[in-house]
Amino acid sequence: MPGLVLSNVEVIYDKVFLAIKGVSLEVGEGEMVALLGSNGAGKSTTLKAISGLLGPERGQVTRGEIRFGDTDLLALGAPARVAAGLVHVLEGRRVFGHLTPDENLVAAYRAGSGRRSFEDLREEVYDYFPRLRERGRSKAGYLSGGEQQMLAIGRALMTEPRLIMLDEPSLGLSPLLVQEIFGIISKINESHKLTVLLVEQNATATLEIVDRAYLIENGQIVMSGEAATLKENPDVQEFYLGGGEHTDYRAVKHYSRRKRWLA
């Protein structure tokens, strides 16, 4: 059963620039799906179209449909989408630097929602991220980059989401920290059957943990499939995984390397 469905979505900035062009994708309930692509391909714009955060950047969905279960998301503002069970962890972590980890979690908690208590949710976050418990009295602005990313994810979990969207969680982190954080994301997905949409440039690490992936280029979906299948694709290997067969292009006059799907 599809949890999130985008059908032929277009986004325009400043009523002029067409940023994404007919994007269609599905994320099933409890599934982990990645949206891969290079910088500027349209990954973050796609997430903001889903979460309702295009307005402050003068962007708008001008065509298509975005549904979450039976809900038409385009009819809702950003706060109502959070209430419907979506949460968006923005690129760059965006924690409240002047607050402690505990205070950041309090700020994200939806009091009066009639669901789990703050104490229960906080303990769960600290079980996933023990380092945050250890740094409980530090200001979040003084945490390391990895700890801030953990806090950003923990803060998102305080909303009790059904779908969590993560924008470049590996950005600026060491390979060991990326492995640790991706492992925790997988654990959260498995234990809660939480639906995950993961936007990343780090295709190598991402394809190790997701079920399926979409590849976006110049605002268009150009490839999709099971993670294992994409890892074996020679174009994906050459352009995104740093592998594949290589030619000595210095010996080829006037050669211009092209991705086959853009030919």
Rank of each mutant, 00 (worst) to 15 (best):
P2F: 05
G3F: 12
L4I: 12
V5Q: 11
V5M: 08
L6C: 10
V9Q: 03
E10Q: 09
E10W: 15
E10C: 14
K15F: 07
V16C: 03
F17G: 01
L18Q: 08
A19Y: 08
I20P: 01
K21I: 05
G22Y: 00
G22H: 02
S24W: 07
S24G: 07
L25K: 02
E26M: 02
G30Q: 00
G30A: 03
G30H: 01
M32Q: 07
M32Y: 02
G37Q: 01
G40Y: 11
K43N: 11
T45E: 09
T45F: 12
T46I: 08
G52N: 03
L53W: 06
L53C: 06
G59H: 10
Q60D: 11
Q60V: 09
V61M: 02
V61F: 03
T62M: 03
T62A: 01
G64T: 05
E65V: 13
E65W: 01
R67F: 11
R67M: 11
F68A: 06
G69W: 08
D70C: 03
D70F: 03
D72T: 10
L73H: 11
L73I: 13
L74R: 10
A75S: 15
G77T: 08
A78L: 02
P79N: 10
A80Y: 04
V82I: 15
A83K: 15
A84Y: 10
G85E: 05
G85F: 09
V87Y: 10
E91G: 10
E91P: 05
G92N: 02
V95I: 15
G97R: 13
H98Q: 13
T100W: 04
P101G: 09
P101V: 11
P101L: 08
R110M: 14
A111Q: 15
G112L: 10
G114Q: 05
G114V: 06
F118V: 12
F118S: 09
R122P: 07
D127W: 10
D127P: 01
Y128T: 01
P130F: 14
R131Y: 01
R133A: 12
G136M: 12
K139H: 14
A140H: 06
Q148F: 10
Q148M: 12
M150V: 11
L151C: 06
A152R: 06
I153C: 05
A156Q: 03
A156C: 06
T159D: 05
P161H: 01
R162K: 10
I164A: 02
D167A: 04
E168W: 00
P169G: 11
S170D: 04
L176M: 11
E180K: 15
I184T: 14
I185F: 09
K187C: 07
N189P: 07
N189H: 09
N189Y: 10
H192I: 00
V196P: 04
L197I: 08
L198E: 00
E200W: 09
Q201N: 01
N202E: 04
T204H: 13
A205Y: 07
T206R: 00
T206Y: 04
L215H: 09
L215V: 15
I216Q: 06
N218W: 00
Q220H: 09
I221D: 01
A228G: 13
K231L: 13
E232P: 08
P234R: 05
F239P: 02
Y240A: 01
E245L: 13
T247P: 00
T247S: 05
D248A: 11
Y249H: 07
Y249P: 00
R250N: 14
A251P: 03
V252K: 00
K253N: 12
Y255M: 09
R257M: 10
K259W: 06
K259V: 14
R260W: 12
A263K: 14
